[in-house]
Design a protein around this nucleic acid. Structure first.
Lengths: 250, 250
DNA sequence: TATATTTTTGCACGTTTTTGCGTATTACTG
DNA sequence: CAGTAATACGCAAAAACGTGCAAAAATATA
């Protein structure tokens, strides 16, 4: 992690000072500017600081140690709200399909509160999370996606989803158009999700309101094919946008 | 666990100080720097501390998201040596099978240095590691093992290994008896490994010398079935123990 | 208690890593 | 497009490291 004591000090200094110059650091830490620069190069490579000509500042959200959590989850607040709502649909003993979305990842957190759950997913991040839990966890297999390196895709990923019938599926998408078509941008991920849709009882779409009224590259399904739509907004706010929608959850 | 009182003290100091130098420790504990270094090597091998030039810090294995990446591995030094040797057997463009052992995890590190590699594994930890790399990564699928929560087992885990023929397989075991039988302790893991063995070109056993002359619950295979045996010791030292062995690597 | 055996310690020495300086290169500034 | 400042890079010196070895300490044995 840290190559030496100085790198610790630099981070400590940056936690109080917003921005420091290389010269200041070399004075403060009684060492040459060369050494400071070498430290900064290392810290930069680890994504801990952001350099600019003459100085450096701290990168926010330094909880990066792990390959995944570094990946910025966008709109976390919305996803947490949706996950809470999703939790109310899950019962002890359920078999749950979770897709490769980060929305589904937050639903996995809710699963930790339930008992006797079986989870089937192609999302590596979810498998890693649940490896600590006492849930039964089943991974789909397949090739690690190149575009979105936290999920398994390709022919081999379909197999398990067609072997198991889930009580409930939680999935997400890139876009939901006004005429009720669900879109995603990655061909292979749409394919796997189709197999999930075909083998699940309740089908639940997690879709934050940012995605309303848009389209994307590939058609996933229609809102008519699903049972529940979950957003981070209030039921009322959403009804005005889509007239003929299925039962929605708050 | 701890080899002496000092190692306990070092951990105690590290629980309050984030980072300490070797010099500080030798003063604090009234002993030579050599002895401190020996303690640190031991603690590092147990995965308890992370060293860097000049000092050490505590390993934080409290990471919630990815439980294993920082998890303590036993006998890390031996595994690193074996991984280095393993690396010399891997060529660019190879298809590599890696089993669920932590020895194989260290081999995965060596793969980061190669190009055009395809990795097939049932080890979640390896998939997580390589998700950052540009290697082609294929996961076996299956049920997350209850005994060893970082790997996939069961019927579904076999499929991929029988579909793909690997250039080389790296695997480990719990024991290697004097008459050349390789043993492991988990039934399900032995089964998957059998499928790997059946579908690999070169078969390479990673086995640190601690495991020599022992047995365990389930028979995996004979040394006659494998092509290379890698240990952390010198070739000479091992030859004296096993007379009729396959070509060994240093 | 005395003696043998094993383990630990500290020092010396060869190796590896880091450091800081000089210099070439690259990036901002007017 | 100069002129200056910051940075990157090569190299020799310094610091830190690992290891073998003999002395010391701890442990086992008689």
């Amino acid at each position: 992690m840290y190559r030496n004591e100085r790198e610790h000090e630099i981070i400590k200094i940056l936690s109080t000072e917003k921005y420091v110059t290389v010269k200041q650091l070399s004075t403060l830490l009684y060492t040459s500017e060369s050494s400071i620069r070498r430290d900064l190069t290392s810290l930069e490579n680890q994504g801990m600081v952001a350099r600019s000509y003459g100085g450096v500042e701290l990168v926010k959200n330094t909880s990066q140690i792990l390959p995944f959590s570094t990946r910025a989850h966008h709109n976390i607040a919305a996803k947490k709200i949706m996950a809470k709502k999703a939790g109310s649909l899950i019962q002890d003993g359920n078999i749950v399909f979770l897709d490769q979305s980060s929305s589904a990842f937050f639903v996995a957190y809710e699963l930790l509160k339930k008992s006797q759950i079986t989870v089937v997913t192609n999302n590596i991040e979810i498998i890693a999370l649940l490896s600590q839990s006492d849930a039964e966890v089943i991974s789909s297999g397949g090739r690690l996606s190149r575009s979105n390196r936290n999920c398994l895709v390709g022919d081999d990923s379909h197999h398990i989803f067609s072997q198991i019938h889930a009580d409930i599926l939680f999935f997400s998408a890139k876009a939901l158009s006004h005429d009720g078509i669900v879109y995603d941008c990655a061909r292979e991920e749409v394919c796997v999700r189709n197999t999930m849709l075909a083998n699940a009882g309740k089908k639940v779409l997690l879709c934050d309101s940012e995605k309303f009224g848009r389209t994307s590259g590939y058609r996933q399904c229609s809102v008519r094919d699903i049972d529940y739509l979950i957003t981070e907004r209030e039921r009322q706010e959403v009804y005005t946008k889509f007239q003929e929608l299925p039962q929605m959850i708050l």
